[in-house]
Computed example of a mutant assay.
Amino acid sequence: MVKTKKLSIPKARTSALKQQDNFAQAADSLEHLQTQDLSKANLNELASVVREAHDSFQSHMVSALEAALVAGNALVIAKEKFLYDREIGGFRGWVSELGISRATSYRYMKLAQNRDIVSQAETLSDALELLARHKAGQRTLQASEDKSSVKKRRATLTLSSERDHKLAMIAESKGIEVSLLISEVLDRWLSRQKNPEQIDIS
């Protein structure tokens, strides 16, 4: 006897009108979160905002970037509360209770802290790319400034062979390295800037 398969009746799909309604509701809830004054919110209220924004982020019902910025802003304010009030526990523990990974929460915060940079982006991936480019640029600039600073210090500390020899002898008599002796001399010189005096290194 041949068994016939029962045809499964497909579940009713959400109509386009219903999907639009869901999208509008999600957008409204995010707009409500964006207009809240979170600076006066307590930790429970901030937790509620973070959860709601994170849910919106995961549901893709609204702009992922906007949801991430709302969550990030609430997390930044919450972290400040933990910094000023040590008795309420640890920020990381609080975040873990929200059911959000540490990496995700810190990504939200980075986006919120760099809103002026990521606001030019239309999508979350564009925002993350802009942020990565900005960080790379900052690192390059810092490295360039560090090299320039080192060059300036080296140029300033260029000594004649006679002075170099004298420093080496004084350092040897004190039982220290020349670099440490120079540091001591500079420290004394900086401390006497208000009342300049000739520094005796002997």
Rank of each mutant, 00 (worst) to 15 (best):
S96D: 05
V150C: 03
K6T: 08
G137L: 12
Q138G: 01
L43H: 10
D21Y: 10
K152P: 00
Y84I: 08
A64K: 14
G175T: 06
E80M: 09
Q25V: 10
R102P: 00
A24W: 09
A143E: 15
L186G: 02
L124I: 11
A64R: 14
E177H: 05
Q120E: 03
A41H: 10
H134N: 14
A24C: 04
S39T: 15
T4R: 11
D116L: 12
E145K: 11
A41I: 04
L17C: 00
F82Y: 13
I170L: 09
E162D: 12
A171N: 04
E177F: 04
K135A: 13
K147G: 08
L83Y: 10
G89A: 04
V118C: 02
I176L: 02
L111R: 01
V150A: 11
S63C: 14
K79W: 01
R102M: 03
V118F: 01
M109Y: 05
L69E: 13
M109C: 05
H54K: 08
S125K: 13
A71F: 09
L75P: 04
K135P: 00
L98C: 02
A171Y: 05
A112R: 04
S144T: 15
T158F: 05
T156C: 01
A24S: 13
E197K: 12
K110E: 11
L130G: 04
R163T: 13
A67P: 04
S144W: 07
W94T: 03
L111K: 00
L180Y: 02
M1W: 00
E197I: 12
K5S: 04
A67I: 03
